[in-house]
Design a protein around this nucleic acid. Structure first.
Lengths: 132, 132
DNA sequence: TGTTATTTGTTATATTATTACAAACTGTTA
DNA sequence: TAACAGTTTGTAATAATATAACAAATAACA
């Protein structure tokens, strides 16, 4: 069996919406927005989201239960993600820093556990909100 | 007004339970377990959890919607947390690594944003599960 | 074409979390 | 002590997030 090459219709509809958005989208907000396109039930959206996360097209912002499109073209699989989150305006940006990803990908602690995935979320105030 | 010194009864009940647990606890599992002690409604548990997280006595594992007691005595405030999570047995361990925390606390990207908090979750297989 | 696996649709329900508001308690001041 | 302000608590209702179960449709392919 081969790895899926093309997105299904539902996956494409959800991906298009998330990619167009300038901010993280919540599952039920996605649902609301794709109802005119025929996705009527939560599960249809969740299934598409699950797949898109799995193949790295989108990421889940865990602390916000929201989804963003991956901005990193080389990010085929979602296994090393870092985000900055403004606690005031909730702006979320994917951090693309090779030093950071290298450091974390190679990180080993004394537990003998080898990590194959990580997710990092930084919180603070973005430039705009800091100057308010 | 002074900062709260002592925990309220509900906070103490919830903290005791989370501290005794060897694994992350979910809010409704906590609720179930403290009902005999008089906490009957979700909100009572969530309020206690919120406060305990705020003062750093417990941490939320965002990817699991579950709570663990802080194992790091110096961790008065929950602003720099790192965990390892076994994707097979779901064992969660707080990572206490000064190099890592130093690196992340001082991390700056090119967005001009200064971070005051982060949460990092590593995923992999723990020793036990790797050898199965 | 027939067979199998995957995807989809649908309903129902489980799980996680918050709103709203009244009552009780705590500490401070008159 | 009484009046008050602020905080914590209790309670009910409901909102928001996510999954289970199963049947129908579609795709993959021998």
């Amino acid at each position: 069996m081969q790895k899926q090459q093309y997105l299904t219709k539902n996956q494409q509809i959800v991906l298009d919406l998330v990619e167009k958005s300038s901010e993280p989208l919540k599952a039920y907000s996605i649902l609301f927005n794709v109802q005119k396109k025929g996705l009527k039930a939560p599960l249809q959206v969740y299934r598409a989201l699950d797949k898109l996360v799995e193949i790295g097209k989108i990421h889940k912002i865990e602390s916000r239960n929201a989804f963003v499109a991956c901005k990193n073209s080389s990010c085929q699989v979602s296994k090393a993600t870092a985000f900055s989150i403004c606690e005031s305006c909730e702006k979320v940006t994917e951090i693309n820093n090779s030093k950071l990803s290298k450091y974390l990908t190679n990180f080993e602690d004394n537990s003998g556990m080898k990590y194959n995935k990580y997710n990092l979320e930084f919180f603070g105030l973005c430039k705009k909100c800091k100057n308010k």
